[in-house]
Simulated scan of single mutants.
Amino acid sequence: MIERRGSPRQRVYKRGTIAFNGGGFDCTVRNLSDGGARIDVEGPVRLPEHFMLVIESDRVMHRCRPIWSSAQRVGVAFE
């Protein structure tokens, strides 16, 4: 398998929030890199073109855009 990520990923299990338009919903962050993340959601969701990924335990917010999705998983790139 060819690795296409620009930076190595770190496996994590962190609670997150996908925030947009004054609202949002919970997610689980499953891996992180300098350039993006993989997140798990409760079910198939339609995400906006850009949103904020909030990880309260780390006190960070990342502006994101979805890159890929399948069932309950979403890959995002940080902007």
Rank of each mutant, 00 (worst) to 15 (best):
1 M>S: 11
1 M>W: 08
1 M>F: 10
2 I>M: 09
2 I>V: 11
2 I>Q: 08
2 I>E: 11
3 E>W: 02
3 E>L: 04
4 R>S: 10
4 R>I: 08
5 R>I: 03
5 R>S: 04
5 R>W: 03
6 G>D: 06
6 G>T: 06
6 G>R: 10
7 S>F: 10
7 S>Q: 05
7 S>K: 05
8 P>D: 02
8 P>W: 02
9 R>P: 11
10 Q>A: 01
10 Q>E: 13
11 R>Q: 07
11 R>C: 05
11 R>A: 10
12 V>M: 09
13 Y>C: 08
14 K>A: 04
14 K>R: 07
14 K>E: 11
16 G>N: 14
18 I>V: 12
18 I>R: 00
18 I>T: 02
19 A>M: 07
19 A>N: 09
19 A>H: 12
21 N>C: 01
21 N>A: 11
22 G>F: 05
23 G>Q: 05
23 G>K: 04
24 G>T: 00
24 G>P: 06
25 F>M: 03
25 F>N: 04
26 D>R: 01
27 C>F: 01
28 T>L: 05
29 V>K: 00
30 R>E: 05
30 R>N: 03
30 R>Q: 05
31 N>A: 00
32 L>W: 04
32 L>R: 03
33 S>H: 03
34 D>E: 14
34 D>T: 12
34 D>H: 13
35 G>F: 14
35 G>Y: 14
35 G>V: 14
36 G>N: 00
37 A>H: 12
37 A>K: 12
37 A>S: 13
38 R>D: 12
38 R>N: 14
38 R>F: 14
39 I>G: 08
40 D>T: 13
40 D>M: 12
40 D>L: 10
40 D>W: 09
41 V>P: 14
42 E>L: 15
42 E>F: 15
44 P>K: 11
44 P>D: 08
45 V>W: 13
48 P>K: 05
48 P>N: 10
50 H>M: 10
50 H>C: 09
50 H>L: 11
51 F>P: 09
52 M>C: 11
53 L>S: 04
53 L>T: 01
53 L>I: 01
54 V>P: 06
54 V>A: 02
54 V>N: 04
55 I>S: 07
55 I>N: 11
55 I>G: 11
55 I>R: 07
55 I>C: 08
56 E>V: 02
56 E>T: 05
56 E>M: 03
56 E>A: 06
56 E>Y: 03
57 S>F: 12
57 S>V: 15
58 D>R: 15
59 R>S: 14
59 R>Y: 07
59 R>V: 02
59 R>N: 15
59 R>H: 13
60 V>G: 13
60 V>N: 12
60 V>K: 15
61 M>F: 04
61 M>A: 09
61 M>E: 10
61 M>K: 09
62 H>F: 12
62 H>E: 07
62 H>M: 10
62 H>V: 04
63 R>Y: 06
63 R>S: 07
64 C>H: 00
64 C>L: 01
65 R>L: 00
67 I>G: 04
67 I>N: 05
67 I>E: 13
67 I>A: 14
68 W>D: 10
69 S>N: 12
69 S>P: 13
70 S>R: 06
70 S>L: 02
70 S>Y: 05
71 A>T: 06
71 A>G: 06
72 Q>E: 10
73 R>T: 14
73 R>C: 14
75 G>C: 08
75 G>Q: 01
76 V>C: 01
76 V>Q: 01
77 A>K: 06
77 A>I: 03
77 A>Y: 01
78 F>N: 02
79 E>C: 07
